[in-house]
Amino acid sequence: MTIQEMKKGYEQEVTYQKHMLRNLGYWFQLWTIISGIGIVLTYFFYRQNLWLCILGITLFVIGTLGMLVFGYAGWKGQQNIHAIIDDFDKKIEYFQ
C-alpha cells in the first residue's frame, strides 16, 4: 500500500463519518421538534384536557431522551473523526 492509497482511504473514511454525523444531526432535529410539540401541547392543554396534557408531557420526555442519545452519538462521532485524523497524521510522520 502506498502513501497515496492510504491517504485516499483515510479521506474516504473521514468523508463517510462526516456524512453520518449530518444524519445524526437530522435525527437530533427531529427529536427537538418532537420535544417542542410536547411543550406546546402541555402549555395549551394544561388545565383543559388531561389526555392531551399527558401526551404533551410524554412527547417532551421522549424527545428529550432522543436528543440526549443522538447528541451523545454526535459527540462521540466528532471524537472518532479527530482520532482518525490524528492516526493518519502519526502514520504520515512515521513514513516520512
Rank of each mutant, 00 (worst) to 15 (best):
H82Q: 06
T42D: 02
G74A: 09
A73F: 13
D89Y: 06
A83M: 07
T15I: 10
N49S: 02
Q17C: 13
L59Q: 05
K8Y: 09
A73S: 13
C53P: 00
G56L: 03
I81C: 04
G74I: 05
F95A: 01
E13L: 15
T42I: 03
M20P: 03
M1Q: 11
Y26C: 15
K8H: 13
Y26I: 15
Q48D: 10
H82L: 00
Q78G: 03
G66I: 08
F60V: 02
L68R: 13
L65F: 09
L41G: 01
Y46T: 05
L59W: 05
T15G: 09
L50E: 00
W31M: 13
L59M: 08
N23S: 10
L59V: 01
W75C: 15
M6I: 14
F45P: 04
F88N: 04
D87C: 03
M67H: 02
M20Y: 09
I37Y: 11
T58I: 02
T32W: 06
G77Y: 05
L24S: 11
G36C: 06
L24I: 13
V14P: 05
W75H: 14
E5Q: 10
V40C: 11
Y16S: 14
E5K: 05
F45V: 05
G77N: 04
H82N: 07
F44R: 05
T2I: 10
I54R: 01
F70N: 14
K7Q: 08
Y72H: 14
T64E: 01
Y43L: 03
F28W: 12
G25C: 11
I57H: 03
Q12N: 14
K8S: 12
V69C: 07
G71V: 08
V40K: 09
L41W: 02
D89L: 06
Q96M: 01
Q17V: 14
Y43F: 05
F95P: 00
E13H: 04
I37T: 12
L50I: 03
M67G: 03
R47I: 03
N49W: 00
Q29I: 12
L30M: 12
G74C: 08
Q79S: 11
E5V: 04
T2S: 15
F28G: 10
S35E: 14
L41S: 01
I84W: 02
E93I: 13
L21W: 06
Q12A: 14
M6R: 12
Q96W: 00
I39F: 03
I37V: 11
Q4R: 15
I57D: 01
H82I: 00
W31C: 10
L41I: 02
L68H: 12
G56N: 01
W27Q: 11
L65A: 09
I34S: 09
K76N: 12
I54Q: 00
Q48V: 10
I85M: 05
I81K: 06
L65S: 08
I3E: 15
Y43K: 10
K76M: 11
N80E: 00
E11W: 14
V61T: 01
